[in-house]
Each structure stands twice: as structure tokens, then as C-alpha cells.
Write a protein that binds this DNA or RNA. Structure first.
Lengths: 125, 125
DNA sequence: CCTTCTTGTTAGTATATCCTAACACATATA
DNA sequence: TATATGTGTTAGGATATACTAACAAGAAGG
């Protein structure tokens, strides 16, 4: 299974929710992402089959090592791009929404330039 | 018909090719975009039915007023975003490729900030 | 205990986007 | 003229992503 945009977003969301509450359930993901239960159910089953997360018999969702690795990379990228837009002057909510889409399409090269921009900004250059 | 990402790209491409050669043919679009002839054939037929372009009996493709308006807006956006990435240090080819995807997802708000950034850069600020 | 709410699944569908195979037709060329 | 080449269409599929309807099963509360 290739990791596509939707899959990356689901993994990222599991990571975020797991930092906010004890157990991550499908219903939490539905609420957070605004998708229907069947959509989330099927997507998570495929991610579990592909080895990116585990769903306990009780329904608690945890990232596997490989799933966590992807989720953390996506999340970091998401935050950095959002930060970048906020520095340009975009409001926080829009910056995060834009970053959520864009992170999946931006080349490594441009992302590196954005990180460099953030580093320079931090050092007051 | 709603204008989606692919449709915007086709209209933009017609505009670009029309600036490069006398007559725009489907084959030119296939070559430029790397899509199969059936894909382009069907997409252009739909754009024609929706009133965004005309296909002459001889097969020459021209944008209508509404099609041109969209194409020009998309093209300008594409160029501005690419310019922006080039200023950050991304190479031209990658900058254009990134811009081609991103232009469809970026909010008006962030795009305005990017244009502002370009204006400031031009004025040496 | 029965009803209701929450949660999750299965089955079927929709849309956007692309593809290949096969064919039609015009033009160009040997 | 016969064949090859280029261009476009139709028909049928594939994939990614989402939806609704209908059902199942556990928990909560009267």
C-alpha cells in the first residue's frame, strides 16, 4: 500500500489525538476530520492491514513504529509550513488549513528552503 | 460544471500554447501535459460543453471569454507562486512544478501575502 | 428488562482523474 | 493508389477518496 494524502492525514490525526487523550477511537477521528464513520472505518482498517497502526479488540487505535514515523514527519512538515505562512501574515487557522493541503505536494527542495527561511527568521536575519 | 484542478490546468495550458503557436490542437496539449489522447479529448469536450473553450470543426481550440478569464487568473497565480519559491531559493523547474500543484489549494489570504512578499522584494525591502 | 445512544461495519454509490484497446478518418508519402 | 502516420473518439476500466443506508453490538439509564 502506498501512502497517499488521505492516509498521511489519518496517521497525523491519530498522532495528534493521542497527545490529547488517553485512547484514540474512530469516533474521535471522525469528529476531528469531519468524515463519516464508514469512511474512517475503511481507511483505518487498510492502514492497520498495511502495518501503520493497530486497532485493539476494544477499538483503541495506536500507531506502530512505521506509522508513527510517518505521522511525525507529516506533522512536523505541517507545522513548519503553517508557521511559515503565519510569518508571511496569514492567520493561524488559514495557515494550518493551507499547510494541510500543501504539505502533500511541496517538493523536498522547496520545503528545505522554507525551513531555512524559518531558521533565518529565528536568528533575526 | 465546477472548475476543478484538472480543468484549470487544461485551460491554463491552452492559454500558454496559444501564445506559442498559431493553432492549439489536442495533440499539443497531450504532449505538453503528458496525458493520453482520450483523457484530453474527453476533458476538452466537457470544457467546451461548459462554455470555457471552442473546438472548431478543424480541431483548433480557442478559449472563450470566460475560459480565458480563468486561464489568465490561474496562469498569473502559477507564475507568482513559482517566482516566490525561486526567491526562496528553489530551482526554476521545481518551483514551477510545485506552484502547479499548490496554486489549486492555497487560500486567497496566503496568496495575497505571497504577492505582498513579491512586491516588497521588488522594492528592495 | 427494554429502550436509546454510541460506535463500528457492510454494501452500494458517487466523483474526479487518469489509463488502454480499438477504431475512424485525414493527410502524407512511397 | 496503397500504406503509414497523426489525430481524435468511443468503450471500458482503474484508483483514490468520500458518501448514505442499513445493520450489529455494547453501554447507559429509566
Amino acid at each position: 500500500m502506498n501512502i497517499h494524502e488521505a492516509a498521511e492525514n489519518y496517521l497525523e490525526r491519530v498522532l495528534i489525538i493521542s497527545g490529547e487523550k488517553e485512547n484514540v477511537r474512530q469516533a474521535d477521528i471522525c469528529a476531528a476530520m469531519g468524515h463519516s464513520r464508514p469512511t474512517v472505518s475503511v481507511a483505518l482498517r487498510e492502514l492497520a492491514q498495511a502495518g501503520y497502526l493497530d486497532i485493539s479488540p476494544a477499538g483503541n487505535i495506536t500507531l506502530t513504529k512505521s506509522g508513527r514515523k510517518i505521522a511525525e514527519a507529516v506533522y512536523e512538515r505541517h507545522c513548519n509550513i503553517a508557521k511559515f505562512f503565519m510569518i508571511l501574515g496569514t492567520g493561524e487557522e488559514t495557515a494550518y488549513a493551507d499547510a494541510c493541503k500543501i504539505e502533500h505536494y511541496l517538493s523536498e527542495e522547496s520545503y528545505e528552503r522554507i525551513k531555512e527561511f524559518l531558521r533565518n527568521k529565528k536568528n533575526g536575519r
